[in-house]
Nucleic acid binder design. Structure first.
Lengths: 205, 205, 205, 205
DNA sequence: AATGAATGAGCCTTCATTCAT
DNA sequence: AATGAATGAAGGCTCATTCAT
């Protein structure tokens, strides 16, 4: 068995995990700052201090790291949301409150990891429905909303979900621009807006 | 010199205006179909039948034509909005209804000009806060909202404006995806959601 | 018709033709010196003094310029061969003599256009059956040979064609390495070898 | 130290030899399938089950393993050829027959080791004069031919050798493309062609 | 003004080779 | 020795922009 040699368990494996994470973090930053199209793989890798080619040891393409980001967000935020939904059972209102709060706190925590420098001179594009964290919220929240509002005479579930999520996203984004970041106030606002809005909705889809 | 002089604009002049407009129209289509980054100047110019270089006689850059698009939207939709605001005077609720309706109709009309083919295999990005038509709504609507809700104990005007606009945008977008496009139903929904939401808002900013 | 403008007929058109030709010439040199794989588009374009991107105004890819090279060779040598075949009608021997002679002269002329510097340190690969000039010979000569030797009891036409062409190619290549380049002697040799070989062939394929 | 000492090579030694051989075999396959440029070191090493870096413990570069391949071919086929030459003494004709036959059989045997998949969409290149097995034939056969044909008034030995080898190579290659592979028929053809060709040659170089 | 070829920076990706383990 | 991640120099190609005509 002269071919056995060093099992990957020591510093090597550790570095690998670190690098993978570093790329992910850098990617989140860069995508956040520049948007998917404008961001380049070099932008991402430059922040990690790694070599250009190294990126491709971890992700096969720019697109794949983006997907990984979404997975990562979903993997981390999804369970939170799921458990909230279970906890709050049929009480939609308290679920919304808890979910929005959790989402804003999650966002604030993510945000703390990097400065958001935006290059001037380019229209700001943003990733729609596919933001890592948003992807998680979207699926789960949409389900919850659909469940809560649907019915023969309920409001249009598609419009409803889109509107609620939009409110959460925009308010969340504005929240991040302020100092200090006040997740409680933002959540309170968004919850009120959403619940009030849902109350005002017409009965016929 | 031997030509008639009483025409306010010579053929030359007219062509210039026409070309400028043609580029604008093509740009709106292309940006709509491909997004800002993916769209190329050649994509735009190709639709006009003009030559690549000609583009730069009218706009100094890809970015500038994009900005012009926003101006154009504002120039056309802005007055509509302004007059609505004047008409509905202090009645915020009826203004919102009228504005949303007008906006959705405007969008539907713009939309009718081209099919929205989106390139597969790429995360869908959308232009944020800078959509031509949106730019117009944004400024004016924000003012109206701020005016309506502000006050020492009113809700946070920034959050409020962002949330309302978000609802209008998302519902508007969803509306465009359906056949037939039903601006009335969408407007009804958005108005209810927005007014209901505003009612639910906490008093303290 | 303010959009008519300058018709491409003057210096512009001329430059285009020159550039296209320059790229073709450079490509022939580079492919000849480095082989298809090793050759880079940058190698080709560098010799023309043009910019990197300009290459793609004329050929869509490295592969396409290679194909164009073959076309070019065929277009120029093909007719020569065709007319020889017509001239020498049924006389296979005299056709072979004329064809080989023409081919060697063609090669010598092409060769005169550039020095063949071969980079050391890399196995020399050469393009097989697809060399521009060879592509022309191949199709036509193969036909002629097949026509001349085939028959129920004739030798294997495939082997025959391959062998004859191989002889012409190798002797031709060696010929180019000598100074002075003596096409007559080389042709005499190749013809003798081929005709002698064909005579020696077994009757049953 | 407590190990037996009468084994000429320890396990270590054996593995080294085995690895070196495994790389060589894999390299022959890969170069054969993909060509020198297209083949990657990883393609080679992947087939051995070894790690990428290990390759460089045995060969200093991609080029070196390629050279080793030629050496290997020569080392294995060279002796065969040498002994044939000795056996057939002055009888050039019978030597050619034996050598060609041996070469074709050698080729067929080598070929049996792998399928020749060639990547589509790329001009087919082949290694010229440097094919492992060819390198061996070349040196020896060239000597034999030179010896047989040279003389003050003999045909040009360089052209002669090149032509004979070309015939053997091309017919050999075509042979490998057929099913079943018929080395006897191919050899018969090549021998006839070569001997007939040599007979037809002019006396003056 | 209109034209469209030329420009060249920059993008994503591959891969021979090195090196810490 | 063996391992396999890291490295970084290219490579093919795109595209916003310039410029001679």
């Amino acid at each position: 068995m002269s071919q056995v040699a060093y099992l990957p368990a020591g510093k090597r494996e550790q570095t690998k995990v670190q690098n993978r994470q570093a790329i992910l973090v850098a990617a989140r930053e860069v995508f956040g700052e520049l948007g998917y199209e404008t961001a380049t793989v070099r932008d991402i890798i430059r922040r990690t201090g790694l070599a250009a080619g190294t990126f491709y040891n971890y992700y096969r393409s720019k697109e794949e790291v983006f997907a990984a980001l979404a997975d990562d967000g979903a993997r981390r935020f999804g369970p939170i949301l799921k458990s909230l939904r279970a906890q709050h059972g049929g009480d939609f209102e308290s679920f919304v409150r808890a979910a929005i709060t959790a989402y804003f706190e999650f966002q604030a925590a993510e945000h703390a990891n990097f400065l958001a420098r935006r290059p001037a001179g380019e229209p700001h594009v943003h990733i729609h429905g596919e933001t890592p964290e948003m992807a998680a919220v979207y699926a789960e929240v949409r389900d919850a909303i659909v469940e809560a509002v649907s019915g023969a005479d309920g409001p249009d579930p598609d419009y409803t979900a889109a509107a609620c999520i939009a409110v959460a996203r925009e308010v969340g984004e504005k929240m991040l621009e302020r100092r200090p970041i006040d997740t409680r106030a933002a959540a309170e606002f968004a919850v009120a807006m959403i619940l009030g809005g849902l109350n005002g909705l017409p009965r016929a889809g």
